[in-house]
Computed example of a mutant assay.
Amino acid sequence: MRSKSFTLLLVEDELADAALFQDMLAEVGGSMTVHHVEHGQAALDFLTRQGEHADAPRPDLVVLDLNMPVMNGHEFLAQVKQLERVRSIPVLVLSTSDRPEDVHRSYDAQASGYVVKPGTYQEYTRVLETVQAYWQGVLSLPSFADLQLDHRTPERDH
């Protein structure tokens, strides 16, 4: 396990689903700080520190629902992966859709993973244990400070 803090941005329009996700993550022992926004535009604002999100931390992982108002998950992925400064942040799609088109479209847009929302409490617990162990424990992720030290690529947000 990594010792540094881990920040997750949850992009989910259903408040009950967002609360369940956060409660279950805490229950499985997740030591992640979770920030929640309700649609893709708010997530872009969070990542680019716009408006009310001017002081937002850089998340280590974005967990993204697909079906949302204002800007859906597919639109968010298409835009965020064009922004050089934040495109390296992994995005895990967590959706009720098991449609092959949604899975393929998400990966084509550079999603880091795709998980169909589980139907039972036990399955959901297992998924969140896996998410926590994999993303916080096993993976090496770039930090924003590390990216700033890399002088080979100038930062450009489009």
Results as ranks from 00 to 15, higher is better:
Pro59Ile: 01
Val86Gln: 02
Ala111Gly: 02
Leu83Ser: 00
Ala133Leu: 10
Arg85Trp: 03
Thr7Phe: 00
Gln41Arg: 15
Gly119Leu: 08
Glu75Val: 10
Gly29Glu: 11
Leu128Pro: 07
Leu8Thr: 10
Val138Glu: 14
Gly30Thr: 10
Asp65His: 03
Glu52Leu: 14
Phe46Pro: 13
Pro69Gly: 02
Arg156Lys: 15
Phe76Gln: 04
Gln22Asn: 15
Leu10Cys: 08
Gln148Asn: 01
Val37Met: 07
Leu139Ile: 04
Leu25Glu: 07
Ala78Gly: 13
Pro90Tyr: 07
Val91Arg: 03
Glu101Gln: 10
Gly29Pro: 11
Leu20Trp: 00
Ser97Tyr: 02
Gln136Arg: 14
Lys81Ala: 03
Ile89Gln: 07
Ser140Gly: 06
Leu20Phe: 11
Leu128Tyr: 12
Ser88Ala: 14
Arg99Asn: 14
His36Thr: 11
Leu44Ile: 12
Ser97Thr: 06
His104Ser: 11
Met71Asp: 02
Trp135Lys: 06
Ala43Gln: 03
Phe46Asn: 02
Leu64Tyr: 09
Gly40Leu: 05
Glu14Phe: 08
Leu92Phe: 04
Val70Thr: 12
His151Ile: 11
Ala133Gly: 11
Leu15Tyr: 04
Val138Gln: 10
Arg2Ile: 06
Val11Lys: 05
Pro57Met: 00
Val138Met: 11
Lys117His: 00
Gly113Gln: 00
Met32Ala: 15
Thr125Tyr: 14
Leu20Tyr: 08
Phe6Arg: 05
Gly40Glu: 03
Glu155Arg: 13
Val91Lys: 00
Ala133Ser: 14
Pro100Asp: 12
His35Phe: 12
Ala18Tyr: 05
Val103Arg: 04
Gln136Thr: 11
Ser112Arg: 01
Leu147Ala: 02
Gln79His: 15
Val28Met: 10
Tyr107Ala: 10
Asp102His: 09
Ala26Lys: 15
Gly113Glu: 04
Pro59Tyr: 11
His39Ser: 04
Pro154Phe: 09
Gln22Asp: 14
Pro118Tyr: 01
Ala18Phe: 13
Pro90Ile: 06
Thr48Gly: 09
Gln22Thr: 15
Leu20Ile: 14
Arg126Phe: 13
Asp102Trp: 04
Val93Gly: 01
Ala16Leu: 04
Ser5Pro: 00
Asp13Glu: 06
Lys81Leu: 05
Tyr134Ile: 13
Arg105Trp: 11
Gln132Lys: 07
Leu66Asn: 01
Asp60Arg: 01
Phe144Gln: 05
